[in-house]
Simulated assay, not measured.
Amino acid sequence: MHPTPTFREATRDDLPQIVGLLADDALGAARESPGEVLPEYYLRAFEAIADDPRNTVIVAELDGVVVGTLQLTYIPSLTHRGGERAQIEGVRVAADQRGHGIGQAMITWAVEQARVRGCRMIQLTTDRRRPEAIRFYQKLGFRPSHTGMKYHLNEP
């Protein structure tokens, strides 16, 4: 039996660990810039999220160590009879903690937050190059119902 993580809202001091988690796979390594001293754009983004009451970044901890993160955003909508939806982004679990139920606990936590808030649905996207992530989300009840499309601006 693996220990259950605790969840809390991330603080600015958590950013090096969060960005490290985001960079800890082949796709993230190509687009993130981890380190103890982070580029200013991460700080600006974190402050914008922290100042937005519809946005939160959470961290999962085991014994005071950050082992996972996700961003949860609430989106008002005219569709679905004006129902609010929740969007999950940036889900990551520390490499040495994968397969121990932390990701499932994080998603279960996020779904419950959306349910309590009265959201009509919860949605997420995952890159097609992450087949393990796709299987993971499907195991938790998410279904591929739409075709996601992105238009990247100002790619480095």
Rank of each mutant, 00 (worst) to 15 (best):
I49E: 04
A95M: 05
G90Q: 09
H152R: 10
P144F: 09
A10N: 03
D52M: 01
E47D: 12
G148I: 01
P3H: 10
I49H: 03
E36Q: 12
A29R: 12
G148M: 03
T79F: 06
E40Y: 08
R117L: 09
D13T: 14
A86K: 02
Y137K: 00
G90K: 07
N55F: 11
H80G: 04
V67S: 02
D24E: 13
N55D: 11
T73W: 09
I75V: 11
R85S: 05
R98Q: 07
Y41G: 11
I18Q: 00
R31N: 09
F136S: 00
T11C: 13
D13P: 07
L38S: 08
L153P: 06
L22R: 00
P34S: 09
N55K: 11
G118T: 00
A26E: 15
G99W: 01
D96F: 06
A23R: 03
V67F: 02
A23C: 10
T11M: 12
I88V: 14
E47L: 05
D63M: 08
M121Y: 01
M1E: 14
Q123T: 03
E61W: 01
A10I: 03
V66G: 03
G103H: 02
D127E: 11
M121I: 04
P3A: 15
S33W: 08
V57K: 03
G103S: 11
H152A: 14
P3S: 09
R117Y: 05
T11Q: 10
P34R: 06
A60F: 09
D52P: 05
R44V: 15
T79C: 04
L21R: 00
H146G: 02
D52H: 12
A86P: 01
P39C: 10
E112C: 05
R143A: 14
H2W: 12
T6V: 10
R128F: 11
V65T: 15
E112T: 06
A94H: 15
H80N: 06
R44W: 07
E32N: 14
L22A: 14
V59E: 00
G83W: 00
G141D: 01
K139S: 08
P3Y: 07
L43E: 15
M1A: 15
T79L: 08
L21F: 00
N154D: 13
D13L: 12
W109P: 01
R130E: 02
Y137S: 00
A23K: 07
E36D: 14
Q138W: 02
